[in-house]
Amino acid sequence: MRCTLKSGSFVAAGALAITLLTGCSGNAAKDEFEKLDAKEFEVVYEVTGDGVKTLMYEEGGKGEISSESVDDPKLPWKKKLTMKGIATAPNVSLILGEKGGQADCVITINGMEAKRATAKGEFGTASCVAVSPAGKSG
């Protein structure tokens, strides 16, 4: 089956809706998404400094995402894992205690720093969220 879109805002919008509803676009887009969603990448989370009361991070082994937390972590703290998928967003965050301090969170993806943040002072917070490299070429 071949589908074509005609110009004109109402006609094009209607044709696009029909294309999406009937699947006329074929499986090319779906196949491409599934290919990107299967791409794996290495993530390293690091937290350094002092005064961290709690840190939280996302795990994404085998494409399944779960949140984990560590109370009173021994610093420096480091976690290496493999994540996959175009919609995966590696993230790590931290909360300082009532005595304050200063701490950094860092996310490295495939050996390159992707995000860094610093928390300072009493109950300070820092959050690092990175974008999946699965959609990038190369």
Rank of each mutant, 00 (worst) to 15 (best):
21 L>Q: 11
126 A>D: 15
16 L>M: 12
42 E>R: 01
72 D>H: 15
88 T>R: 03
97 G>L: 01
23 G>F: 13
102 Q>G: 03
89 A>M: 15
59 E>W: 06
117 A>F: 09
23 G>T: 15
70 V>S: 12
128 C>E: 01
81 L>M: 11
107 I>M: 01
79 K>W: 11
8 G>K: 12
117 A>S: 15
40 E>I: 01
37 D>S: 06
4 T>N: 12
119 A>P: 04
2 R>A: 10
115 K>T: 08
36 L>E: 02
120 K>I: 15
88 T>V: 11
134 A>L: 09
27 N>P: 01
26 G>N: 04
10 F>R: 15
77 W>K: 13
133 P>N: 03
34 E>L: 14
118 T>L: 07
97 G>A: 02
59 E>L: 12
135 G>A: 13
5 L>M: 14
72 D>V: 06
44 V>C: 04
68 E>R: 15
65 I>Y: 09
123 F>A: 04
117 A>W: 05
69 S>P: 01
118 T>I: 13
104 D>N: 10
65 I>E: 11
126 A>W: 07
136 K>R: 15
135 G>K: 12
123 F>H: 15
134 A>H: 13
130 A>N: 03
5 L>C: 13
24 C>E: 09
72 D>I: 08
88 T>G: 05
97 G>W: 00
132 S>N: 07
131 V>M: 13
63 G>L: 03
96 L>C: 00
4 T>M: 15
35 K>P: 00
106 V>R: 01
1 M>K: 15
39 K>E: 03
22 T>Y: 08
134 A>W: 07
47 V>P: 02
43 V>A: 01
24 C>Y: 11
118 T>H: 07
14 G>C: 02
85 G>T: 13
77 W>T: 04
71 D>M: 08
20 L>A: 15
20 L>V: 10
115 K>Q: 11
21 L>D: 12
67 S>C: 05
110 N>G: 13
12 A>K: 15
114 A>Q: 01
21 L>G: 12
50 D>F: 08
132 S>E: 03
61 G>E: 10
45 Y>N: 05
105 C>K: 00
120 K>A: 09
98 E>G: 13
106 V>W: 00
18 I>V: 14
99 K>H: 09
19 T>R: 06
87 A>N: 02
68 E>P: 05
63 G>R: 00
114 A>D: 05
88 T>C: 09
125 T>K: 09
71 D>Y: 12
13 A>G: 12
129 V>S: 04
78 K>G: 05
38 A>N: 05
28 A>G: 14
120 K>R: 07
11 V>K: 14
62 K>V: 04
24 C>M: 07
115 K>M: 08
90 P>T: 14
126 A>Y: 05
74 K>R: 10
57 Y>Q: 05
105 C>D: 02
15 A>N: 12
94 L>P: 01
97 G>E: 00
123 F>G: 00
134 A>I: 08
21 L>V: 06
19 T>H: 03
49 G>E: 02
138 G>T: 06
48 T>K: 10
120 K>C: 07
24 C>S: 04
72 D>S: 13
88 T>D: 03
84 K>L: 12
27 N>A: 05
20 L>F: 08
31 D>P: 00
90 P>R: 11
